[in-house]
Each structure stands twice: as C-alpha cells, then as structure tokens.
Design a protein around this nucleic acid. Sequence first.
DNA 1: AAAAACATACCGACCAGTCGGTATTTTCGA
DNA 2: TCGAAAATACCGACTGGTCGGTATGTTTTT
Lengths: 194, 194
Amino acid sequence: MQQRSEETRARILESAVKLFSDRGFNAASVDDICVEAGISKGAFYHHFESKQALFLALLDGWLKTIDSAIEASKDKTAPETFMQMTEAFPYIFETAGNHLPMFMEFWLQASRDEKIWQASIAPYRRYHKYFTSLIKKGVDEGSFVDVDPQIASRLIVSTAMGLLLQSLLDPKGAKWEKVARESTTMLLNSLIKK
Amino acid sequence: MQQRSEETRARILESAVKLFSDRGFNAASVDDICVEAGISKGAFYHHFESKQALFLALLDGWLKTIDSAIEASKDKTAPETFMQMTEAFPYIFETAGNHLPMFMEFWLQASRDEKIWQASIAPYRRYHKYFTSLIKKGVDEGSFVDVDPQIASRLIVSTAMGLLLQSLLDPKGAKWEKVARESTTMLLNSLIKK
DNA sequence: AAAAACATACCGACCAGTCGGTATTTTCGA
DNA sequence: TCGAAAATACCGACTGGTCGGTATGTTTTT
C-alpha cells in the first residue's frame, strides 16, 4: 500500500506551509521542514525533486481550491456572487490571513522565477477573465452601471489584495474584516444600478 | 574631507537598490553588492553595521521621499490632491515599477522582522492618518459624499497597492498606467458629490 | 526477490560578518 | 606652513556556519 507514502507527502506539504508562512521560502530550510514533518531528508527528496518543486506543488493545491470555489458559484447572478464573496471575508481574513506571507512569497518568486511565473500567470489570467465576464454579465443584465468590465475587475481584485497586504503589515491597526466588508459595500454601491 | 566616503556610501546604496530589486534581499549577497559598487567588503562594513542596517537605510530614504511628496501637497484641497496623485501614476508605474519587488521585500521583511516593522509601521500609520484627514476635509468641505474617512482611506490605499501588485505579476497583461488612472477616476466618481 | 519508501552521512557552494593590515585624509603643534 | 601623528576609509583573505542536494545503505511494502 502507498498509504504511508501519501501520509508522508501530506506531512511534508503541511510542514512546508507552516514554515514558509512563518519564516519565508528562503529562511525555511529543507532540514527544518524535515524535522517539522518528522521525516528524513531522504524521504523529502524521494517525494519532491527539489525545494522549488515543493513550492510548485503547494501553489498547485492553492490554485485548485480557488478553482473549486469559482466552480461552486457558477450559476449565480453577478450581484449574488459578489455578496457571497463579501460574506466570505471573515473566513478569508481568519484562515488565509496566516498564510498571507506565503502568498506574498509566491508572488515575489513568480515575478523573478520563470517556472513559477509560468505556473501562476495562466490561472491568474483565467481568474481575471472570469471576473471580467462576471461584471460584464452584471452590466448586460442591467444590474450594474455601465463600466468597463476589464477595469472594474482589476479594481476589485486590487482592493482585495491591497486590503490583505495592509492587514499583513498592521494586523492590529484596524478591524480588517469590517474594513473589507464596508469597502466591498462602497465599491458595490458605485457599481450597482439604483 | 569626507567626500570620498559619502560617494562610497552612495554607491553602496545605489547598488543595493539595483540588486535587491533584481534578485531579492536574500539572493543579493553582500559580496555581490560590493562588486557592483566597485568596493571591498571592508568598506561595506565600515559604512553599514549589517546587511539589515543597509536595508533600513534604504527604507529610510524611501520614506523621506514620500514625506516630502506629502509636504509638497500640503495646502491644496482634497480633490486637487487626488487629481495630482492620478497624474503622478505614469511616473510611479515607470520609475517605481522597477523597484516594486524591493518594496514587496520591505513589506514581507517588515511583517517578520521586528526592527524593520518598527521602522515602517509608524510612517505607515502616519500616512493613513494623513489620508484619512484629507478625505475628512473633503467630506467637511462638501466636495465628497458622506463616507467613513477611515474606510475610504484604506480602500484607496488598497487599490493603489493592489494595482501595483498586479502589475508586478503580469506587467504586460494590461496597460497598467491606464488601468490605474481609470480606477482612480471610478473611485473618485463614487466619492465626489455631484 | 524486487521495488518503493525512508534514513544518514556527507559534499561543495555560498554567505554574513571579522580581522589584521594598508592607504588616504585630517588635525595640530612647532 | 610643514610634517608627523591620529583618525578615518578602505582592502581582501579568512571563518564559522548554513543550505540544497546526493550517494549509499537499510527497512518496509508488494
């Protein structure tokens, strides 16, 4: 059976998330990850070609959760989807909040590492397209005012990312969950046709 | 005279910006910086206590330029200031664009490194206060609609940061300068009282 | 017995920071 | 104003340690 093998792999992934989040990609050594996972270096390199490959595996898993979230909100209307996203904010700020530094690492690595960039840019563009079409649908349905969907999409994604960034720098500087919710409301108010 | 000394220091700073931007804080070694600056390691450690100290010096310089920019727009009205910021976007995306990865590094380091966090959090909060008061002024003057200045401030800063982040990941994915300008316009339109 | 999973010792590269010494600039007394 | 001492700026070899990755051997599963 490969049960033990899968468990080991899962433990490596889990430990990597924890250590990358806490210390960053560079500062978290392979040895650290092995100790945290309670396995040997041999086991690590049996499961992953390199440290970067582990990174990519993590990225892959993350992108898949986003995909399934999008899939889940497939046949709702545009305003409905946005509302749903607003309601998801507490969850995002609680859980993803701890992993934020790691996502930042992803971002940085992607901007400098060709392979990682290749792996992330396609999903990123796909999400942008999805968002854009969502807004376009809203405009066509008449529930949104007449905005450029491309621009509005960037604007909304920017807001989400910027809020997360700010919350990363100054977690206790504001009630971020509340700020996020009200910001979304403000944005929606300027989008929704009265 | 300390002319030579100052020149050396300036060259170190300059080289550090270049290398930190290109490769990141960790990947850019002190040796690399010394070679780039055309000086020896001894000279480096004569001018800076540590690599981190150099990082802080860079941060300091950056914050000072922001301060002077704020100072310059002291006695303008709120909408005027925002318009001015919009006009500054091309410049920001052109020049700061190359240094963006480094600013990300600042951010990440700040979230993990107590000293760097201490150095950045005060200015960050100061800027937030400035922004908030600027919006409050606009509301009181009657040129802005009645929004929570705190929230609006976070929202605007988020947008700027998020756009920069997106442009970092996918520089050729959009005409970012245009997106930035139109996003600002959209935000302003929802802020300005008609 | 064969193959997959895991362990351990080890390697070479790299890196932040040090240290003893040298070159250049500044200070100051004669 | 000149020259020597003091201070500052700079040099580059070296150190102690870390890290990603490998080689080789052992255990566990099939």
